[in-house]
Design a protein around this nucleic acid. Structure first.
Lengths: 346, 346
DNA sequence: CTGAAAGCGCTTACAG
DNA sequence: CTGAAAGCGCTTACAG
């Protein structure tokens, strides 16, 4: 059963040819260099033994592992699986695989994980963990790996990224609420250490300003993390501070679900008393009560683009072309469901 | 910036010692073989150059990659991320990493993915894709890799597995409904090609039989897949066939959510008209309307156990001990929320 | 305690 | 069209 692993050398011995001949046949690119008849014999024998070339050995020799490392902050957060799927789909098309690891939010742990990935000779890194001022990115840059950031970006522009257009998303959300007649809109702000939290906050301010809303009427409330519990606490406190609020624009869907908890606790109805808008359109927010109005982000597409970008970078590297950093911004979409309606009468 | 990659040989040259000396120092296990003073010099120089041993080269030499391949059917299904997390956490503790890939449900594609993983020299495989009669498992067995199945198992007992105790879960669900007073309980059956679908069905029958319910009063309805849409269609058809049903026991949470859709379409209220029970307790089913009563499965623990099992198998392999196949069954838990109540009056 | 040497399984310039 | 040889970066028995 446990058939002994066949190698190039083994096959060559059986066939009475040189290993380099077998090697040439196994690679479709170089197969033409070998005589038709010999090639067929080699192929047949390889198949008979279920020969599978050892890619690690090849990687060692060519200094190309065809592995891209992917570091996630939390695979359990529903936005990441689709991104990952997009990355994998695209990489696979080009003969690459993803070495995915979950690193949490702690920079020390992340640095450790990056070192693990580098020790395993990944050709490139895709980081979904970026913070605006990210020490780990510096670490990666020093190591000299090809690098791309996905979903989040850093502030210093040292690395290419594929992100959502956060300004556009917030504009959609704000204009939806404005159109319904809301003028007292609280923004539950996500972590300011992350580009998403920061840019959505700016997007909220920009969108309101564009519609002539005064600074004083922009009601911001910080949440410590993108979690349901932080959303609940933030919403409770925001309701206290701004009792006249008729709508809440949450930094993401998890915060929005926390708002649902808080509103229920306060005996307020959504959307009749307070409208709520989320951000991400993560799975199943159409099933909650009430179905959540939110901003849909193309997570799968984001993964695909990130993979393409990193693959392109790898190609340029080989061609010795420098190439500056780019930021690819995907357009989000408003999904109106039942958590938003016209404001209650004051 | 892009500092040239340092190697054992490079360090040895700089230090004027032999590569094997440097090698011995880099491995804590063999460090004691080297003189204290030399070891310190080596360590200092290694740190100065940010030396990171090439694990691929080591793997080639030792024939141990310390990589475990993990094959998933669909990372987008919320039950898998926690399993994955458990696997990774445990593997990391032992110096292993997971090479995760999403393979879909198609056996051809899965076989291809397995070959990819094997070509990359994984030491072992954890499959979350198992079907009751699984051709891909045969393929893996032939290749002679250490193998463990997680969440699902195959029928032939050729491979160890870590699964949920499906009988126990169904007993909890059935007895909960019985205790509420239901006697007309439909079971929306999951795919019979999967151990989960099959065993939950048997569990339903066993539990009802234990309470003296006649075969004729066991109302089964097959669903083609574990999806919300299949649940909706199945529920609609089941309602047609069994109009007196007062409760639905869905094969999993996704099917249960599909029931919600169907009930809404038929103008039936849950739980007043029909109680619904799910299976898995996946994230956010506490936020749907109504919050779902379901069976909680320890997915993270399942991943941890699967990793432990495969690691143990690897160790035995080294120790030349055969060791038969085992099945580890985790105990599930009933989570009562608002989708179940006493039956309506007939 | 340290060194010299062989070899893991490939790839690829260089000959012929 | 095919072969001989070197080498990717390690590890590890074998000497001394």
């Amino acid at each position: 059963m446990q058939q002994k692993k066949m190698t190039l050398k083994g096959l060559a011995e059986i066939l009475g040819v040189h290993t380099s001949t077998v090697g040439r046949v196994m690679d479709p690119e170089t197969r033409h260099m070998v005589g038709e008849e010999v090639a067929q014999r080699v192929l047949r024998e390889a198949a008979r033994h279920g020969y599978r070339p050892n890619k690690m050995a090849a990687a060692l020799r060519t200094r190309r592992s065809n592995i891209v490392g992917v570091m996630l902050p939390d695979i359990t957060n529903p936005v990441f699986p689709p991104i990952l799927l997009g990355i994998e789909d695209e990489l696979r098309k080009h003969g690459y695989v993803a070495l995915v690891t979950n690193a949490g939010e702690d920079p020390e742990q992340q640095r450790f994980v990056v070192d693990q990935l580098l020790a395993r000779q990944v050709d490139a890194l895709i980081l979904a963990t970026a913070t605006r001022d990210d020490p780990v990115i510096g670490h990666c840059l020093e190591a000299g790996v090809a690098l791309v950031t996905v979903n989040r970006s850093e502030d210093r522009g040292r690395v290419s990224s594929v992100v959502n257009d956060e300004y556009a998303g917030m504009r959609l959300a704000v204009e939806h609420l404005l159109a319904l007649g809301h003028s007292r809109i609280v923004h539950l702000v996500g972590p300011q250490t992350l580009s998403t939290g920061h840019l959505r906050r700016e997007g909220y301010e920009l969108a309101l300003a564009a519609h002539g809303v005064a600074r004083a009427d922009m009601w911001l409330f910080d949440c410590s993390a993108y979690t349901r519990e932080a959303g609940r606490a933030g919403c409770l406190a925001a309701l206290e501070r701004y009792p006249q609020a008729t709508a809440i624009l949450a930094g993401n869907d998890l915060l929005a679900l926390g708002c649902y908890d808080a509103l229920r606790e306060r005996g307020l109805r959504c959307p009749e008393d307070v409208s709520v808008v989320g951000h991400n359109d993560m799975p199943f927010v159409d099933m909650v009560n009430p179905p959540l109005t939110t901003i849909r982000i193309g997570h799968h597409a984001m993964g695909v683009q990130a993979a393409q970008l990193v693959l392109r970078r790898l190609k340029e590297e080989k061609d010795e072309q420098g190439g500056g950093q780019v930021e690819i911004r995907l357009k989000p979409e408003l999904v109106v469901r039942n958590s938003t309606t016209v404001p209650r009468k004051a």
